[in-house]
Design a protein around this nucleic acid. Structure first.
Lengths: 215, 215, 215, 215
DNA sequence: CATGAATGAGAGTTCATTCAT
DNA sequence: AATGAATGAACTCTCATTCAT
């Protein structure tokens, strides 16, 4: 989990407890109000601290999210970097990657959404978002190349295809995990395993086709 | 009311010219600054009108976007509703739908992004976003059911699969058309036709698989 | 007096009346509290306006003082530039210059002090202060050179001597006109004409000496 | 109490070492940032001490400066009080006084400026400043009376003339020693001995004139 | 004595919205 | 209808001062 650290400077036990409290409050407020509507004063209040305390630990709202996002980035990295398995079948491997990403979203969803939202308002978060995406695109493009060598999804640029793939995964995670958006829409309950099953099938399907395939 | 198309009240030629100017300015400012950062005063200035004029025509920023979004919604509807072609092959039909959606995005991108951004900040736009998505999901789910009758992508819920499909399309449009996001990332130039080609192939691929398929 | 203008942009009668009110209030508050302690909210209140109105006309406290200082600078320039009289006896001329400076201080004293105070806190006002001083030093150094040609105050650098002269005048004005400082100290009433008489005599005396003078 | 020299209470070796460190840090910070911008936390940090330690020794910023200023006041007193020499020629004596004042400024410049700055913001420092000035005015006025008895600078009030004289010296010191202001302005290097030479000549000149003098 | 995290009053600044002209 | 100055609620951020360890 490797949470903690990332605040401003060395501090004692008391200081890091406060920082943790502010971060936790930050996650809750961000989840509740979104990045744009989150107020520093609300974060402080939610943490049961004074406003000044917030500023002792973070320069502003941006820096708070930066710290939280770092945890998200690490979680994604740990989860996705892990299934090294180049040796695996590219499709099986992709399934693993999707599942990992899903897990990261499940745990850090609010932060992920906040970063996404912030990326629409703040150039440095836009950069961060591009970095995160780039990471995902690179990883997926490797599997696509492998698949192409076996004769699948030929005739498309691996990077472009990877970008499309990542959009599918990211936004599905966003819509389902975070916003719970389509659940109400479809009048169904959230069912992680069904959704992830469907998602992985479609991810794989999206690249496991041959130009010469016939019905 | 709904016929008067969003403005506030019946107005003469001068009034509607002003309203058009404000809408046009709104699109430019929204494109430039995003929904959250767009200021009423900037829209008025961009339109070459006084702030008071803005309020003569729109109650607030929300109403302005509502008016612009209505145009986007109609464009999507016209484009997507059009390829009625239930009679077509479901996959061919899906290709058409994707192309239509893409076109709508190309033309109304700034507004689409603004609505999306607003949906993160404002509950009524969140609703609107869900409506737009629901529309897309319903349309796609019909094709999926057709495909399933032919033995494809069986074993998955058509609505859930459709949601995933829509995420892929929507977010790819968002990333490429609007934010131009992955272009720099991949160090390539924008090439609409290549991207749309890849996207449609993957959309189709995502549902044109059989459980029993072998390599 | 040529007051007015200097605000942010073109505005109508109402706007410039408000701006004038804010400037007047600014002068009073600056006189009362000094630059450092002056609060925007106090200026607005003193002007009988809302805080927002202040910001409609000035970007911040610095800009307000800048506008007021410009009036002071012009007053000094008008007063001091005027006694062109190079043709005059350099000592008579100097007397005129001192009187002019005194008049400017009498009228804009509070602003002058505010600028001086600001120069201790804000680099751009420090620059302005140096500019104003430089202006005075240049003017006085011309008279000193003339005096030197007649055999007076030889053996000193005209600029350095001028700097000393300006210090005498400036700080005497500061102490007496503005702060009223030495009045209470000396247990006397302010008497402009006596003070200015003494000051001019000493200014002249400070350079009207000969190295070979004997008692 | 007065003997303990400004600190708060009787303290041991450790305490007074800390206090000395804080004072030294105070001088540096005051020189760097000025009185208004100096922050308690910066002084503590510069001293390598905790903020709490600062408050153990001084009630607030005002008290710190008071302690430092006391040292300055004593230096001025020691330097200026010393040249008792009423027996000297009043002009020679004045030269000595000016030189002494200059020396005090050279050594305690930062503190002197800080006190001056503080006097614009804080009534008790305004008082202190008046006291210091009064001291100087009293001393100089004695010489002026002596000069008047010899027929010089007759017809002016000795106290008023003395006030003008002190302004010349004080502000010249301020401008040159502390702010280094006119140096850059005049494009010359600092040259203590030249400046002090000029200054003393002008101080003497300012009172060594006769009403009946002819060119 | 030393420490430094915590506190919160207070100042600056923005911007949606109103309304008299 | 159009105008744009005026308004003030709502936020952000700073820093002197306290106090538990």
């Amino acid at each position: 989990m490797a949470i903690e650290q990332a605040g401003r400077s060395r501090k004692g036990a008391k200081g890091s407890r406060t920082e943790a409290a502010i971060k936790a409050a930050g996650r809750r407020v961000l989840a509740r109000d979104g990045y744009v509507n989150a107020k520093i004063s609300d974060v402080a209040e939610e943490a049961g601290k004074a406003i000044g305390s917030f500023y002792k630990h973070f320069r502003n709202k941006e820096e708070l999210l930066l710290a939280l996002a770092e945890e998200f980035r690490i979680a994604v990295q740990d989860n996705i970097g892990a299934p090294s398995g180049i040796e695996l079948d590219p499709f099986d491997n992709l399934r693993e990657v999707v599942r990992s990403f899903w897990r990261a979203y499940r745990e850090h969803g609010a932060v992920a959404v906040a970063v996404f939202q912030a990326s629409m308002v703040n150039e440095s978060f836009a950069d961060m978002w591009r970095q995160i995406r780039a990471q995902g695109i690179r990883i997926a493009s490797i599997r696509i190349r492998l698949a192409q060598r076996r004769g699948y999804c030929t005739g498309v640029d691996p990077e472009v295809a990877s970008s499309v793939l990542c959009s599918m995964v990211e936004f599905t995670c966003y819509s389902w995990v975070v916003k719970n958006g389509d659940l109400d829409l479809l009048g169904r309950n959230a069912d992680d395993s069904e959704l992830i099953e469907t998602l992985t099938k479609m991810v794989v399907g999206a690249i496991r086709w041959r130009e010469d395939a016939v019905d």
